[in-house]
Design a protein around this nucleic acid. Sequence first.
DNA 1: TCATATTATGAAACCCGTTTCAAGTTGATT
DNA 2: AATCAACTTGAAACGGGTTTCATAATATGA
Lengths: 333, 333
Amino acid sequence: MISIRDVAKMAGVSPSTVSRVMNGTAKVNEEKRQRVLNVIKETGFKPNETARSLYKKSARIIGVILPNIQNPFFNGMAQAIEEEAYSRGYRLMLCNSDNNLEKEKNNIDLLSRMNADGIILLTNQDGIRETIEKCKVPVVILDREVKADNQVACIRSDHYKGGRLAAEHLVRCGCRKIVNMRGDQALSSARDRFEGYLEICRKYEMAPCYIDCRYSFREGLKKTEEILKLYPDVDGIIAGNDMVAMSVYKVLSKKGYRVPEDVQIIGYDNISLSELMTPELTTIAQPISDMGRASARALIDYVEQKSNEDNYHFDVELIQRDTTIMKEGGSRK
Amino acid sequence: MISIRDVAKMAGVSPSTVSRVMNGTAKVNEEKRQRVLNVIKETGFKPNETARSLYKKSARIIGVILPNIQNPFFNGMAQAIEEEAYSRGYRLMLCNSDNNLEKEKNNIDLLSRMNADGIILLTNQDGIRETIEKCKVPVVILDREVKADNQVACIRSDHYKGGRLAAEHLVRCGCRKIVNMRGDQALSSARDRFEGYLEICRKYEMAPCYIDCRYSFREGLKKTEEILKLYPDVDGIIAGNDMVAMSVYKVLSKKGYRVPEDVQIIGYDNISLSELMTPELTTIAQPISDMGRASARALIDYVEQKSNEDNYHFDVELIQRDTTIMKEGGSRK
DNA sequence: TCATATTATGAAACCCGTTTCAAGTTGATT
DNA sequence: AATCAACTTGAAACGGGTTTCATAATATGA
């Protein structure tokens, strides 16, 4: 492969001059400049990024570590991150963590050894903090709560409000027996949502009624069956997220329940699927793209020493679609 | 950051010896070896990957270029590629191409300048061949047809058979008016499937009946409306892929058609969603994970000069679920 | 016109892990 | 004891773009 020294020789200048022509880092005599440009054009010379990274200690790479690319919530984020990063000249190193601490550590470690400029983390393994602090790469935490020294920003949405919104909406739709399929309480987001739900229970003097259900379709199926056994009079279900809501709908529909007439369902996230499925899913929308974009922006701004806003709290909103319905004789207590 | 030279100094040996200890490339006196290992442990020294890449001309990176990460078909592939790559010590550079030739070229170019070990391409821009040949990085073409000199392998599934299977299944289910929503005929895969469909039309002496519909949910909605206007007697729809099938179902269901009683639907790909949605979708399964894994494997084997199989043709199969139904009085002509 | 300031330019150092090559050491063989 | 082989080890070169620093050349001002 042709190097900058080859180009220099051909153009009768020094490598430094070629570098200056390419990067515009200093003035170069116009005639020499043209000679260099011509040689570059003729030879199709492309500077080696690795060599540049080595000196600059920056590979123009952003590492994105997420549990699973197939999850629509995460890949929605990844999409937005990629767009923002690409437009600013950075590329994405994508790492599936499978919620596996070892894999996460490996990836963070490698990323820092590759001179990655930063890492966007969608995970909340407890043991991870030490690793990310040791590697000293700037980190943005997205949708999770980790808190590390080298954390540049933390991007979250208002889960407490989301929890309230979901519960209150079902109340307003006339549900009298609402079951909350709360997510893994190790996640602060799931805890916040559940708190919001509890507040609404207090407000309307309802006895809280919940079941634990991780954010997975498969578990959603199982837990929905349980709900139907435990609470035969259920008429409203707050699913942990949209995937779970899909599974809830599937089980209900198989058992002959009508949605929303017999049981109403509300999801969470507003992944693109929630609008695509039939019936369209009522859900609490997190601004997934905005959050992804913001995380990339915060990271790159930090790296390029631009802004320094470091705490983003995004708003959520209720999107009413077809799995809930406002009834006439509203049942406000 | 601490370098190999620092470690060497601390252990009282040369950098070469440290390198040899880390990589096991040569025998080192046991006592020195221990000294080096101790220093590495104490300092937490991690060798810089960029420097290694520069010399080795290999970054242990595989570039994956796909139109869109949010598409379940593509992210299913990406997931499998990531798993295979990770297990063999490679990482993924993920690039969204948005079907944008310029972006693809940029990404390929950058990947080669970063000493990426190879590229897996899920795209079929016409203008791309020149770029991938010029960059000289090994390329695996996945699910598409490009043909370039530096192409290591081409991974496809049997679309012709898939097209036949889908059509014949609807025939067997008693459909008399089957409409094929054929995909973009610029894609060889879509052409092959359509050919398969045509063969079944000939076999059963049916007049071919089709409409062009790109692989997108939105377009699926529009084209389904058109179908209902153009062919009010339609009783079987072959969707271009599972996403389109979902949109077909949505429109039919909104208009009061029953599926599969009034109209039967078959999708294509068997993305994970097809089993999750309600009703579960009958579809032609491509072994998405196997294909993704195979592409990574072929690339890495090539890079590491192991095998050299270069043409993979995966089988497809019919997965019957709830959007089609075998009726009693089968209508075999 | 001379002195000083400014600018263009290349040599060399730098980033850091790897590998080559030659020198030094040890041990075996005769 | 002498010779040769085998092995350990470090100095130096390497990969390739960037930057510093000193020099040379030109320009400005007095």
